[in-house]
Design a protein around this nucleic acid. Structure first.
Lengths: 214, 214
DNA sequence: TAAATAGTGTCTGTGAGACACTATACA
DNA sequence: TGTATAGTGTCTCACAGACACTATTTA
C-alpha cells in the first residue's frame, strides 16, 4: 500500500506591516518570477520542504519572494488550509495560509504594499485566500497578543492603534472605547508619556508599551 | 528547481457523536491496523491523495478506519495543522486536523467512543492534537451552526443541549440561560412540543428544531 | 409527597458602542 | 481663535451568569 502520489503543500503568507506614515496596515504582494503566472502579482509562497516547519517555510517565502530581512518578521501563525484541486494549474496543491507580521521599524523595500481591502487581482486563488482570511486577521487584533504586538511594535500611540484597528476591521473606533479595550489586553501597559501630535495638530496621543511580550 | 521531496500530508479526524443514552458527546478512536503503532489507539487518519479534498480524505478515514457509514457524517470542518517533523516515526508528515460530526441517530458500532476529556493514550502526537483541538470544538458550539446541527441532529431537547454543552465546555449551564443562548442561534427554532421526561423524572424538556440547516 | 429536572422571570456584572465634555496640539 | 485630535466620564444596550420561584414529571 505504498502511496507516492501525495499532494504537494505550499505555504502562502499574508505578510502585514503597519506603515505609520500611511497610517494603515498593508499587505505584501510581489510579482511572480517563474512560470505559472510569471509576472503576475501573488502572495509570497513556497513549496514546503520535507521536514520543514510551516513557520520556517513562511520565513523562506517572506525572505525569498519579498526580499525582506527574516529578522524583521515579528510573529507568525496559521490561518487556514485551501484545498481546491484546481487552485494551481501545475496540478493539485494544498495551500496552508499563514500570517506574518513585520516590524514597523524595519526597512520594507522590495514588496508592493497594498491595503488588504484593495488588493489587486492575484495569481492562483490568492484573491480568495485574502478574502477568506481578512476577517480572521481582524478577529485576531487585540485578542491574539503576539499578532497585535508583532503588528504594532514594542511601543505605539493611541493614534496608531486607531489606525491599525480601522485598517483591519473597516471602521475607526472612538479613542475612548479603544483605550478601554487596550486596558484589558494582557501585557499591554498605558504609560504616562505623550507622543508628538500629528502634523495636523490635535492633542498628543498616549504611548502604550508591551510589558511581557517582545 | 524540481522539488520532489515534499512533506506528506495526513488528515486526522476528530469524529464526534452525541450519545443520547450516555448523555455525552464522544470521540471516536480505533486501534491501528498497520505498522507504525500497530494495535495502539489513534484518531482515524489517512494520507491525503493527490488532488483529494480534505473533506473527502476525512470521510475516507471515518469510513475506512472507523468502519462508519459515510452517509452518517453530518458535517466536517478544519481545525488546525500540526507540523512537528518528528510526529510520525516514518518521517516528516504534516497532519491537518479536521472535525466530523456523526448523526446521533445512525448506527455507531465499530470505533471506540470515549469522552474527549478522558481519551486514553494515543499513537503519534494524537494526544496533543486532541488536547489542542478540544477548546476549538467547545468554541464552535452554538456559534458554528453546521457543527452544532451536525452534532445534535435535526431535532433535540433542552436536556440534550445541556448534555452536549457540558460535554464540550466542561460545565453545565443553567437551562434558562442555555435556552436564551439557543434563542439567538440563527436557524434554530423553539417548538411547542415537549419530549418525554428522563427516566428519573422531572419536567419534560422542550423540543428544538433546525429550520434552515439540514 | 419527595426528588428530579425544566421553564419563567429577575438581577447583576461585563464589555461594546455612542456621545458630551474637556484637554492640548497646530495654523 | 478655529480646527483637529485625544482623553475622561457617562449612558445605554446586549449578553452571560446566578438564582428564586414555578411547572411537571417519576418514584
Amino acid at each position: 500500500m505504498a502511496r507516492i502520489e501525495s499532494t504537494l503543500v505550499s505555504v502562502d503568507v499574508l505578510t502585514l506591516r503597519f506603515d505609520a506614515r500611511a497610517r494603515a496596515v498593508l499587505l505584501a504582494v510581489a510579482p511572480r518570477g517563474s512560470d505559472p503566472f510569471a509576472g503576475a502579482l501573488a502572495l509570497p509562497g513556497v513549496l514546503l520542504g520535507r521536514g520543514e516547519r510551516l513557520r520556517d517555510a513562511a520565513l523562506r517565502a517572506v525572505t525569498g519572494k519579498l526580499g525582506l530581512d527574516g529578522s524583521a518578521v515579528t510573529a507568525t501563525g496559521q490561518l487556514a488550509t485551501f484545498d481546491e484541486p484546481s487552485r494551481d494549474p501545475r496540478g493539485p496543491t494544498l495551500s496552508v495560509a499563514l500570517w506574518a507580521t513585520v516590524d514597523p521599524a524595519a526597512p520594507a523595500s522590495g514588496p508592493i504594499w497594498t491595503p488588504p481591502a484593495e488588493v489587486p487581482a492575484l495569481a492562483f486563488d490568492h484573491d480568495r485566500i485574502v478574502a477568506d482570511c481578512r476577517p480572521m486577521l481582524a478577529d485576531r487584533l487585540w485578542r491574539d497578543v503576539p499578532f497585535t504586538a508583532g503588528l504594532l511594535g514594542r511601543e505605539f500611540t493611541t493614534a496608531q492603534a486607531l489606525d491599525v484597528t480601522e485598517s483591519l476591521t473597516g471602521d475607526r473606533p472612538y479613542p475612548a472605547n479603544l483605550g478601554r479595550t487596550m486596558d484589558r489586553v494582557p501585557g499591554l501597559e498605558r504609560t504616562e508619556q505623550h507622543a508628538a501630535a500629528l502634523p495636523k495638530g490635535g492633542r498628543p496621543p498616549l504611548v502604550w508599551r508591551w510589558t511581557s511580550t517582545g
